[in-house]
Nucleic acid binder design. Structure first.
Lengths: 128, 128
DNA sequence: TATTACGCTTACGTAAACGTCAATTAATTG
DNA sequence: CAATTAATTGACGTTTACGTAAGCGTAATA
């Protein structure tokens, strides 16, 4: 009784995530996805869909596809030998640090935006 | 009694921010900076230095140079006519929304990383 | 004064991330 | 069965953000 496992066509994923099929195929070329084939048609699993979502999230954070792959592969690396695990932890910490720095940059920028917003609102009032 | 206003050479800024002079000249070409000239030598003011810092921060957030310019110009846009002010506020809100979404992405990613970290740490323990 | 150190401009090169055809195939539908 | 419709594989084009010389001027330094 294996689960029927929902699958997706490339056009469905493209529509759902608002990217072109070209983009999805490119991600496959870069080994971020590896859908099954039915004939020569690509059939995407739920897992592929998750990886696509992760890839796009990484992109929104400004990561390159290579960086996205590195990060996402960590999720799927699984439990290996001791050395591997330590390397995994190290990479996770590195990425974590980068993300924290990035969040700090965001917070700084948000503060500046708030400042300018208030100035602009004041100026608007005085002009009424 | 005007203040002496510290200035910088291109190589000094390059060193301080860890970029090449090529990069700084490119930013000028894209109108993100506009240093004075002494002969044909570029002389950067404190204001130029701030704009460079803002530019690099924007880049770290994955913005293109064009987006960085848009944002930074907002800071310097100053108080204009009513319509201008309203447009300014709108753009600020847009950028703010994007940053908040980006921060949400970061938080999601951090959560996942924490999860994987714990798994890996468990696996390490059980292997000792 | 010859050399080194910077700086300048001009311009070609490049990697990343797609966009945009073109030509072909396979499945669906009137 | 002819005509769409969606998918595939090339392959070339494009934008962004620099890298990398080449060739030249200027200023300090050995």
């Amino acid at each position: 009784m294996s689960k029927p496992q929902k699958t997706y066509l490339i056009s469905e994923l493209a529509k759902e995530f608002g990217v072109t099929t070209r983009t999805i195929r490119l991600y496959e070329e870069q080994n971020l996805l590896s859908p099954q084939r039915e004939g020569n048609k690509r059939i995407y699993s739920e897992g592929d869909r998750v990886r696509l979502r992760l890839t796009l999230r990484a992109k929104r954070l400004g990561m390159t596809l290579a960086e996205a792959k590195e990060l996402i592969d960590l999720y799927y690396d699984g439990r290996n030998k001791k050395h591997q695990l330590e390397k995994l932890l190290e990479k996770l910490r590195e990425r974590e640090d980068k993300l924290l720095e990035q969040r700090a940059d965001i917070d700084l920028t948000l503060l500046e935006i708030e400042r300018i917003k208030k100035q602009a609102e004041e100026a608007l009032k005085e002009q009424s």
